[in-house]
Design a protein around this nucleic acid. Structure first.
Lengths: 195, 195
DNA sequence: ACCTGAACACCGTTCAAGT
DNA sequence: ACCTGAACACCGTTCAAGT
Protein backbone atom coordinates (compact mmCIF):
# COMPACT_ATOMS: atom_id res chain seq x y z
CA UNK A 1 0.00 0.00 0.00
CA UNK A 2 2.99 2.26 0.39
CA UNK A 3 4.23 2.08 -3.18
CA UNK A 4 1.66 2.61 -5.89
CA UNK A 5 3.90 5.10 -7.62
CA UNK A 6 6.86 4.58 -9.89
CA UNK A 7 10.11 6.42 -9.14
CA UNK A 8 9.35 9.26 -11.55
CA UNK A 9 5.76 10.03 -10.58
CA UNK A 10 4.72 13.04 -8.43
CA UNK A 11 2.78 12.59 -5.23
CA UNK A 12 1.50 16.15 -5.08
CA UNK A 13 3.43 16.93 -1.96
CA UNK A 14 4.05 20.51 -0.84
CA UNK A 15 5.70 22.06 2.16
CA UNK A 16 2.17 23.02 3.18
CA UNK A 17 0.85 19.50 2.74
CA UNK A 18 3.74 18.13 4.77
CA UNK A 19 3.12 20.62 7.59
CA UNK A 20 -0.61 19.88 7.62
CA UNK A 21 0.13 16.18 7.81
CA UNK A 22 2.53 16.77 10.67
CA UNK A 23 -0.15 18.78 12.46
CA UNK A 24 -2.59 15.91 12.09
CA UNK A 25 -0.09 13.57 13.69
CA UNK A 26 0.46 16.10 16.47
CA UNK A 27 -3.24 16.26 17.26
CA UNK A 28 -3.79 12.53 17.15
CA UNK A 29 -0.64 11.26 18.79
CA UNK A 30 1.40 14.09 20.28
CA UNK A 31 4.80 15.41 19.32
CA UNK A 32 6.51 12.04 19.55
CA UNK A 33 4.15 10.72 16.90
CA UNK A 34 5.73 13.10 14.42
CA UNK A 35 8.43 10.96 12.92
CA UNK A 36 9.71 11.33 9.40
CA UNK A 37 8.78 7.77 8.56
CA UNK A 38 5.41 7.94 10.26
CA UNK A 39 4.60 11.17 8.48
CA UNK A 40 5.58 9.64 5.14
CA UNK A 41 3.33 6.67 5.91
CA UNK A 42 0.51 9.07 6.81
CA UNK A 43 0.96 10.89 3.50
CA UNK A 44 1.38 7.71 1.48
CA UNK A 45 4.88 8.42 0.27
CA UNK A 46 8.32 6.93 0.69
CA UNK A 47 10.14 7.98 3.89
CA UNK A 48 12.72 10.07 2.11
CA UNK A 49 10.14 11.99 0.06
CA UNK A 50 9.76 14.29 3.06
CA UNK A 51 13.26 15.61 2.54
CA UNK A 52 12.25 17.22 -0.73
CA UNK A 53 10.17 19.72 1.26
CA UNK A 54 11.85 20.05 4.62
CA UNK A 55 15.50 20.13 5.66
CA UNK A 56 15.19 17.65 8.49
CA UNK A 57 12.98 16.66 11.42
CA UNK A 58 14.14 19.61 13.49
CA UNK A 59 13.17 22.17 10.87
CA UNK A 60 9.82 20.45 10.46
CA UNK A 61 9.07 20.71 14.18
CA UNK A 62 10.25 24.30 14.40
CA UNK A 63 7.98 25.38 11.55
CA UNK A 64 5.05 23.43 12.91
CA UNK A 65 5.41 24.85 16.41
CA UNK A 66 5.72 28.40 15.15
CA UNK A 67 2.45 27.86 13.31
CA UNK A 68 0.95 26.87 16.65
CA UNK A 69 2.09 30.16 18.14
CA UNK A 70 -0.04 31.82 15.46
CA UNK A 71 -3.12 30.73 17.41
CA UNK A 72 -2.17 32.85 20.39
CA UNK A 73 -4.44 35.87 20.77
CA UNK A 74 -2.89 39.26 21.32
CA UNK A 75 -4.67 41.99 23.21
CA UNK A 76 -4.92 45.36 21.50
CA UNK A 77 -2.07 47.22 23.23
CA UNK A 78 -4.02 50.49 23.14
CA UNK A 79 -7.08 49.34 24.99
CA UNK A 80 -5.80 47.49 27.98
CA UNK A 81 -3.92 47.88 31.22
CA UNK A 82 -0.40 46.45 30.91
CA UNK A 83 -0.88 43.91 33.72
CA UNK A 84 -4.11 42.59 32.25
CA UNK A 85 -2.61 42.56 28.77
CA UNK A 86 0.37 40.50 29.90
CA UNK A 87 -1.90 38.07 31.67
CA UNK A 88 -4.03 37.74 28.54
CA UNK A 89 -1.14 37.03 26.23
CA UNK A 90 0.66 34.63 28.57
CA UNK A 91 -2.51 32.80 29.44
CA UNK A 92 -3.35 32.42 25.77
CA UNK A 93 0.12 31.02 25.21
CA UNK A 94 -0.38 28.57 28.05
CA UNK A 95 -3.71 27.45 26.64
CA UNK A 96 -2.42 26.94 23.12
CA UNK A 97 0.62 25.01 24.29
CA UNK A 98 -1.30 22.75 26.64
CA UNK A 99 -4.10 22.16 24.14
CA UNK A 100 -1.81 20.53 21.63
CA UNK A 101 -0.72 17.41 23.39
CA UNK A 102 2.20 16.31 25.48
CA UNK A 103 5.80 17.38 25.19
CA UNK A 104 5.19 20.37 22.92
CA UNK A 105 6.08 22.86 25.67
CA UNK A 106 9.05 20.78 26.81
CA UNK A 107 10.37 20.80 23.28
CA UNK A 108 9.96 24.57 23.10
CA UNK A 109 11.69 25.03 26.43
CA UNK A 110 14.63 23.09 25.14
CA UNK A 111 14.69 24.55 21.68
CA UNK A 112 13.48 28.10 22.02
CA UNK A 113 11.44 29.74 19.30
CA UNK A 114 12.61 32.25 16.75
CA UNK A 115 9.98 32.00 14.06
CA UNK A 116 7.77 34.82 12.78
CA UNK A 117 5.02 34.29 15.32
CA UNK A 118 7.48 34.07 18.17
CA UNK A 119 8.89 37.44 17.10
CA UNK A 120 5.44 38.96 16.81
CA UNK A 121 4.53 37.87 20.33
CA UNK A 122 7.84 39.18 21.59
CA UNK A 123 7.07 42.61 20.16
CA UNK A 124 3.62 42.57 21.67
CA UNK A 125 5.02 41.77 25.10
CA UNK A 126 7.58 44.51 24.68
CA UNK A 127 4.82 47.05 24.11
CA UNK A 128 2.94 45.99 27.21
CA UNK A 129 6.09 46.03 29.31
CA UNK A 130 6.88 49.53 28.07
CA UNK A 131 3.45 50.64 29.26
CA UNK A 132 4.35 49.18 32.62
CA UNK A 133 7.48 51.29 32.66
CA UNK A 134 10.05 48.68 31.63
CA UNK A 135 12.43 49.37 28.76
CA UNK A 136 15.79 48.23 27.48
CA UNK A 137 17.53 45.50 29.43
CA UNK A 138 14.80 45.50 32.09
CA UNK A 139 12.16 44.77 29.46
CA UNK A 140 14.24 42.03 27.83
CA UNK A 141 14.81 40.31 31.15
CA UNK A 142 11.17 40.58 32.18
CA UNK A 143 10.06 39.20 28.82
CA UNK A 144 12.42 36.27 29.08
CA UNK A 145 11.27 35.49 32.61
CA UNK A 146 7.61 35.56 31.59
CA UNK A 147 8.24 33.26 28.63
CA UNK A 148 10.28 30.84 30.71
CA UNK A 149 7.62 30.66 33.37
CA UNK A 150 4.75 30.23 30.92
CA UNK A 151 6.37 27.53 28.81
CA UNK A 152 7.65 25.80 31.94
CA UNK A 153 4.17 25.77 33.44
CA UNK A 154 2.74 24.38 30.21
CA UNK A 155 5.38 21.67 30.21
CA UNK A 156 4.54 20.65 33.77
CA UNK A 157 0.82 20.74 33.01
CA UNK A 158 1.19 18.32 30.11
CA UNK A 159 3.55 16.05 32.04
CA UNK A 160 2.53 12.44 31.97
CA UNK A 161 0.46 11.54 35.02
CA UNK A 162 3.27 9.71 36.75
CA UNK A 163 2.04 6.45 38.18
CA UNK A 164 5.14 6.28 40.34
CA UNK A 165 4.62 6.84 44.05
CA UNK A 166 1.71 8.40 45.82
CA UNK A 167 1.09 12.12 45.49
CA UNK A 168 -2.25 13.80 44.88
CA UNK A 169 -2.28 14.20 41.11
CA UNK A 170 -3.15 17.76 40.20
CA UNK A 171 -6.07 18.29 37.84
CA UNK A 172 -5.82 20.24 34.63
CA UNK A 173 -7.92 23.01 36.13
CA UNK A 174 -5.85 23.22 39.28
CA UNK A 175 -2.69 23.38 37.24
CA UNK A 176 -4.14 26.25 35.22
CA UNK A 177 -5.27 28.21 38.25
CA UNK A 178 -1.87 27.62 39.83
CA UNK A 179 -0.25 28.98 36.68
CA UNK A 180 -2.35 32.15 36.66
CA UNK A 181 -1.66 32.80 40.31
CA UNK A 182 2.07 32.46 39.82
CA UNK A 183 1.83 34.70 36.78
CA UNK A 184 0.25 37.39 38.91
CA UNK A 185 2.96 37.00 41.55
CA UNK A 186 5.56 37.38 38.85
CA UNK A 187 3.98 40.47 37.34
CA UNK A 188 3.63 42.00 40.78
CA UNK A 189 7.33 41.51 41.35
CA UNK A 190 8.23 42.84 37.91
CA UNK A 191 6.19 46.00 38.34
CA UNK A 192 7.43 46.50 41.90
CA UNK A 193 10.79 46.20 40.11
CA UNK A 194 12.87 45.57 43.17
CA UNK A 195 16.52 45.55 42.12
CA UNK B 1 34.86 -6.84 21.31
CA UNK B 2 31.31 -6.94 22.53
CA UNK B 3 31.03 -10.64 23.23
CA UNK B 4 33.85 -12.19 25.19
CA UNK B 5 31.40 -13.93 27.48
CA UNK B 6 29.39 -17.09 27.03
CA UNK B 7 25.64 -16.97 27.73
CA UNK B 8 26.00 -18.27 31.28
CA UNK B 9 28.82 -16.05 32.53
CA UNK B 10 28.33 -13.06 34.85
CA UNK B 11 29.51 -9.60 33.86
CA UNK B 12 29.53 -8.19 37.39
CA UNK B 13 26.75 -5.77 36.65
CA UNK B 14 24.80 -4.08 39.44
CA UNK B 15 22.08 -1.49 39.51
CA UNK B 16 24.78 0.81 40.91
CA UNK B 17 27.22 -0.01 38.11
CA UNK B 18 24.52 0.59 35.54
CA UNK B 19 23.63 3.98 37.06
CA UNK B 20 27.28 5.02 37.25
CA UNK B 21 27.74 4.07 33.62
CA UNK B 22 24.67 6.10 32.69
CA UNK B 23 26.07 9.05 34.60
CA UNK B 24 29.31 8.80 32.65
CA UNK B 25 27.39 8.93 29.41
CA UNK B 26 25.42 11.91 30.71
CA UNK B 27 28.58 13.86 31.49
CA UNK B 28 30.30 13.04 28.22
CA UNK B 29 27.41 13.22 25.79
CA UNK B 30 24.29 14.63 27.43
CA UNK B 31 20.99 13.00 28.15
CA UNK B 32 20.42 11.86 24.57
CA UNK B 33 23.63 9.85 24.77
CA UNK B 34 22.01 7.64 27.38
CA UNK B 35 20.56 4.89 25.25
CA UNK B 36 20.11 1.34 26.41
CA UNK B 37 22.30 0.02 23.63
CA UNK B 38 24.91 2.72 24.05
CA UNK B 39 25.06 2.09 27.76
CA UNK B 40 25.43 -1.64 27.18
CA UNK B 41 28.24 -0.93 24.75
CA UNK B 42 29.86 1.35 27.34
CA UNK B 43 29.67 -1.41 29.95
CA UNK B 44 30.77 -4.15 27.58
CA UNK B 45 27.61 -6.22 27.81
CA UNK B 46 24.81 -7.27 25.48
CA UNK B 47 22.06 -4.64 25.01
CA UNK B 48 19.44 -6.59 26.88
CA UNK B 49 21.68 -7.21 29.89
CA UNK B 50 20.61 -3.77 31.15
CA UNK B 51 17.09 -5.07 31.70
CA UNK B 52 18.29 -7.36 34.46
CA UNK B 53 18.92 -4.28 36.60
CA UNK B 54 16.49 -1.65 35.44
CA UNK B 55 12.87 -1.84 34.32
CA UNK B 56 13.28 0.26 31.20
CA UNK B 57 14.94 3.42 29.90
CA UNK B 58 12.44 5.65 31.68
CA UNK B 59 13.14 4.17 35.09
CA UNK B 60 16.85 4.45 34.42
CA UNK B 61 16.59 8.16 33.65
CA UNK B 62 14.31 8.85 36.60
CA UNK B 63 16.73 7.22 39.02
CA UNK B 64 19.73 8.92 37.49
CA UNK B 65 18.11 12.37 37.60
CA UNK B 66 17.00 11.97 41.18
CA UNK B 67 20.61 11.17 42.05
CA UNK B 68 21.50 14.48 40.41
CA UNK B 69 19.07 16.28 42.70
CA UNK B 70 21.12 14.88 45.56
CA UNK B 71 23.84 17.37 44.69
CA UNK B 72 21.59 20.31 45.47
CA UNK B 73 22.63 22.12 48.62
CA UNK B 74 19.99 22.93 51.20
CA UNK B 75 20.30 25.89 53.53
CA UNK B 76 19.86 25.20 57.21
CA UNK B 77 16.25 26.31 57.70
CA UNK B 78 17.04 27.62 61.20
CA UNK B 79 19.77 30.03 60.29
CA UNK B 80 18.46 31.93 57.33
CA UNK B 81 15.86 34.40 56.19
CA UNK B 82 13.16 32.67 54.15
CA UNK B 83 13.76 34.79 51.04
CA UNK B 84 17.49 34.16 51.07
CA UNK B 85 16.93 30.48 51.79
CA UNK B 86 14.58 30.08 48.84
CA UNK B 87 17.04 31.85 46.57
CA UNK B 88 19.83 29.57 47.77
CA UNK B 89 17.94 26.36 47.17
CA UNK B 90 16.49 27.36 43.79
CA UNK B 91 19.79 28.73 42.59
CA UNK B 92 21.53 25.54 43.62
CA UNK B 93 18.92 23.60 41.70
CA UNK B 94 19.49 25.79 38.66
CA UNK B 95 23.26 25.28 38.85
CA UNK B 96 23.05 21.52 39.23
CA UNK B 97 20.61 21.17 36.34
CA UNK B 98 22.53 23.40 33.97
CA UNK B 99 25.88 21.86 34.91
CA UNK B 100 24.88 18.44 33.68
CA UNK B 101 24.46 18.97 29.98
CA UNK B 102 21.65 19.69 27.61
CA UNK B 103 18.05 18.53 27.85
CA UNK B 104 18.19 17.36 31.46
CA UNK B 105 15.93 20.19 32.66
CA UNK B 106 13.61 19.80 29.69
CA UNK B 107 13.21 16.14 30.53
CA UNK B 108 12.43 17.01 34.13
CA UNK B 109 9.91 19.63 33.08
CA UNK B 110 8.15 17.03 31.02
CA UNK B 111 8.44 14.20 33.46
CA UNK B 112 8.33 15.74 36.89
CA UNK B 113 10.33 14.29 39.74
CA UNK B 114 9.07 12.14 42.58
CA UNK B 115 12.21 10.47 43.81
CA UNK B 116 13.63 10.66 47.35
CA UNK B 117 15.73 13.74 46.70
CA UNK B 118 12.85 15.54 45.02
CA UNK B 119 10.74 14.89 48.11
CA UNK B 120 13.52 16.09 50.41
CA UNK B 121 13.86 19.35 48.52
CA UNK B 122 10.11 19.79 48.53
CA UNK B 123 10.05 19.51 52.32
CA UNK B 124 12.88 21.97 52.60
CA UNK B 125 11.05 24.50 50.45
CA UNK B 126 7.92 23.96 52.49
CA UNK B 127 9.79 24.90 55.64
CA UNK B 128 11.12 28.09 54.13
CA UNK B 129 7.71 29.05 52.76
CA UNK B 130 6.18 28.46 56.18
CA UNK B 131 8.68 30.92 57.63
CA UNK B 132 7.54 33.39 54.99
CA UNK B 133 3.97 32.91 56.19
CA UNK B 134 2.70 30.54 53.52
CA UNK B 135 0.98 27.32 54.51
CA UNK B 136 -1.46 24.79 53.09
CA UNK B 137 -2.65 25.41 49.54
CA UNK B 138 -0.77 28.69 49.33
CA UNK B 139 2.51 26.96 50.11
CA UNK B 140 1.83 24.15 47.65
CA UNK B 141 1.10 26.60 44.86
CA UNK B 142 4.11 28.77 45.65
CA UNK B 143 6.34 25.71 45.73
CA UNK B 144 5.06 24.49 42.38
CA UNK B 145 5.53 27.93 40.81
CA UNK B 146 9.12 28.17 42.06
CA UNK B 147 9.96 24.71 40.75
CA UNK B 148 8.38 25.40 37.38
CA UNK B 149 10.25 28.64 37.01
CA UNK B 150 13.58 27.19 38.05
CA UNK B 151 13.45 24.11 35.87
CA UNK B 152 12.08 26.15 32.99
CA UNK B 153 14.93 28.64 33.31
CA UNK B 154 17.46 25.80 33.40
CA UNK B 155 15.88 24.30 30.28
CA UNK B 156 16.16 27.60 28.41
CA UNK B 157 19.71 28.09 29.61
CA UNK B 158 20.82 24.75 28.24
CA UNK B 159 18.94 25.21 24.97
CA UNK B 160 21.05 24.62 21.92
CA UNK B 161 22.51 27.87 20.59
CA UNK B 162 20.06 28.10 17.71
CA UNK B 163 21.86 29.06 14.53
CA UNK B 164 18.55 30.04 13.01
CA UNK B 165 17.93 33.77 12.50
CA UNK B 166 19.72 36.67 14.05
CA UNK B 167 19.22 37.43 17.73
CA UNK B 168 21.94 38.31 20.19
CA UNK B 169 22.71 34.96 21.80
CA UNK B 170 22.60 35.26 25.53
CA UNK B 171 25.68 34.15 27.44
CA UNK B 172 25.58 31.57 30.20
CA UNK B 173 26.30 34.27 32.75
CA UNK B 174 23.59 36.57 31.46
CA UNK B 175 21.11 33.73 31.53
CA UNK B 176 22.02 33.01 35.13
CA UNK B 177 21.71 36.64 36.23
CA UNK B 178 18.40 36.85 34.40
CA UNK B 179 17.22 33.77 36.26
CA UNK B 180 18.14 35.17 39.67
CA UNK B 181 16.47 38.46 38.94
CA UNK B 182 13.25 36.75 37.91
CA UNK B 183 13.46 34.55 40.97
CA UNK B 184 13.58 37.66 43.15
CA UNK B 185 10.60 39.13 41.32
CA UNK B 186 8.72 35.93 41.91
CA UNK B 187 9.55 35.77 45.60
CA UNK B 188 8.58 39.41 45.99
CA UNK B 189 5.20 38.64 44.51
CA UNK B 190 4.76 35.51 46.60
CA UNK B 191 5.52 37.30 49.84
CA UNK B 192 3.38 40.29 48.88
CA UNK B 193 0.82 37.52 48.37
CA UNK B 194 -1.64 39.49 46.32
CA UNK B 195 -4.33 36.97 45.54
C1' DA C 1 19.52 -14.65 38.99
C1' DC C 2 22.26 -12.87 35.35
C1' DC C 3 23.62 -12.87 30.92
C1' DT C 4 23.81 -13.81 25.54
C1' DG C 5 21.77 -14.57 20.74
C1' DA C 6 18.50 -13.50 17.88
C1' DA C 7 14.72 -11.27 16.56
C1' DC C 8 10.85 -7.62 16.06
C1' DA C 9 9.41 -3.31 15.00
C1' DC C 10 10.94 0.75 14.70
C1' DC C 11 14.01 5.37 13.91
C1' DG C 12 16.63 9.68 10.77
C1' DT C 13 19.19 10.33 6.84
C1' DT C 14 21.81 9.71 2.43
C1' DC C 15 22.80 8.30 -2.20
C1' DA C 16 21.85 6.79 -6.65
C1' DA C 17 18.65 6.31 -9.64
C1' DG C 18 14.16 7.29 -12.59
C1' DT C 19 10.79 10.76 -15.02
C1' DA D 1 12.38 19.24 -9.17
C1' DC D 2 10.15 15.47 -7.01
C1' DC D 3 9.92 10.95 -5.91
C1' DT D 4 11.32 5.75 -5.11
C1' DG D 5 14.58 1.81 -3.80
C1' DA D 6 17.90 0.48 -1.14
C1' DA D 7 20.96 0.99 2.24
C1' DC D 8 23.48 2.62 6.65
C1' DA D 9 23.69 3.14 11.27
C1' DC D 10 21.09 3.34 14.72
C1' DC D 11 16.97 2.74 18.49
C1' DG D 12 13.93 0.02 22.83
C1' DT D 13 12.31 -4.23 24.06
C1' DT D 14 11.14 -9.27 24.29
C1' DC D 15 11.76 -14.17 24.22
C1' DA D 16 14.19 -18.31 24.48
C1' DA D 17 17.97 -20.18 25.76
C1' DG D 18 22.47 -21.24 28.69
C1' DT D 19 25.02 -21.56 33.45
Amino acid sequence: MTSRRQPGQRAGLTRQVVLVGAHELLVSGGLDAITVRGLARHLGVAPNAIYSHVADRGALLDDLLDDLLGEITEPDPDEVEPDAGLITIMDSTYRVLTAHATSVPAYLAQQGARGDNAMRLGKSMEGLLAMAGLTGADAREARRVLIIYTIGAAAFATAEPVTQRDGPRISRDEAHRNFVRGLKWLITGIVANNV
